[in-house]
Write a protein that binds this DNA or RNA. Structure first.
Lengths: 230, 230
DNA sequence: CCAAAAGTGTTGCAATTACACCCATGT
DNA sequence: ACATGGGTGTAATTGCAACACTTTTGG
């Protein structure tokens, strides 16, 4: 019943696509979902990898805080940013460390464009890992990443989220690759094309991608405006 | 950049079904979605109706806090309880009242059985209102209720949530009424039956409801176990 | 016998899937 | 020429909505 030694923190799960470290067993294409982690520089869990995050400042919204620690740790601006869940169990992966103040974590998740993600340099304490092959994480962060991955897969099917992982202009083949990387299975190119065209969320730019050693694919851009709030 | 005059509060949107106050225009059956509100007894927004809620105690989880203020204001135990969203804008419906501490609200939403909801007595400061016809609410609570209603309608279609609003045993007619009340439109009894049976989330008890002035309907019970976490 | 809801059957439309096939380019 | 992915066509399947019809009770 003590009143409020409770701290509010904001953490962010950031997704980007990168070439897979090792050749895929399942013969999936050239992209795999990755996310950046930061290595903890103090106790608890010193040395472990963790989600970027930090305390909420008094003069910023939760969303602003997510943006701030996203930019601060990876230098990236997200193309999609959305609240995931708030974790507030009394003991959250801190194994019997009384005197540590209790933390309620509001977790956001974000998407960044591949080309941006690819150019970000890994420094000593920030590195990208494949979402399917993470190192042991601090606190309850493995559980949190699990939630985020499930949400990503889910929303992929009924939203236009995938556009947020690609450049302004893209081919339907690239878009399909994104879906395949996230869902972890191959999709029929013909049916995929029709489904996407039917939703009307992409529009052809008129231009075509040249220099490929096959029929030049048409370029498209997303017609979806960034969503209301979520 | 000041550090943390931030308070964590937990509020709960509670849904139950009750007979509609006035006969429905749309010729919908005998049930309508209602929710309990409490009248504020101090500033800000004194006298206005608001969601039940209060500060998070240091020794309880967010979920426990939701349970606590749910039991405290309405005396009810929920059959479903789930986190909705966390609201943390700097100015949340408090019109320029500096010196009030900033509040981050974690909102839960809950379902209670109809029979329980129906027997709860309204006292001076707690009353049930139809979700489609609410009085002006304090803070940003109208927006929050809107979110909760949308989530309820949505999850209704791909989960077994509706079971949580009915007694242990129920007829498919009653289950259909619940869906109709929440979705706000009539459903075909034949197709509804088949859809529900196909999911395998209900099992006939073998008993039948007697005393009705038509063919006695079979009684069913839910086979769905309370979900993992959500 | 009639009203009323339970419960079954049938039919047509729309979305999804699988897969055959042609097209345009670089090598 | 041919390999490669882009792009179109089509037939089979499935799921869903509409609606006719039979069943079993209370009045």
């Amino acid at each position: 019943m003590a009143e409020q030694p409770v701290t509010v923190a904001v953490s962010t799960v950031i997704f980007g696509l990168q070439p897979p470290a090792e050749p895929r067993d399942d013969a999936l294409g050239g992209l795999a979902v990755h996310l950046p982690l930061v290595q903890r520089v103090r106790e608890p869990h010193l040395g472990r990898w963790a989600l970027p995050g930090g305390p909420l400042h008094a003069d910023e919204s939760l969303r602003e805080a997510a943006r701030r620690n996203l930019a601060g740790t990876t230098g990236l601006r997200p193309t999609h940013l959305e609240q995931l869940y708030t974790f507030g169990a009394v003991e959250r992966g801190v194994p019997a460390t009384p005197e540590e103040p209790r933390v309620v974590s509001v977790v956001y998740w974000a998407l960044v464009r591949t080309e941006v993600a690819a150019t970000t340099v890994d420094d000593e304490h920030v590195a990208w890992f494949p979402a399917e092959d993470l190192p042991p994480l601090a606190f309850d962060h493995e559980e949190i990443v699990g939630w985020a991955v499930r949400r990503l897969k889910n929303k992929l099917e009924y939203t236009h989220l995938s556009h947020a992982l690609l450049p302004e202009e893209f081919t339907l083949g690239q878009l399909r690759e994104v879906h395949e990387a996230i869902l972890g299975r191959r999709l029929d190119p013909a049916n995929f094309r029709r489904r996407v065209e039917a939703t009307g969320t992409v529009a052809p730019t008129g231009a075509h991608q040249a220099g490929v050693r096959h029929r030049p694919p048409a370029l498209y851009r997303s017609t979806a405006r960034e969503e209301l709030l979520t």
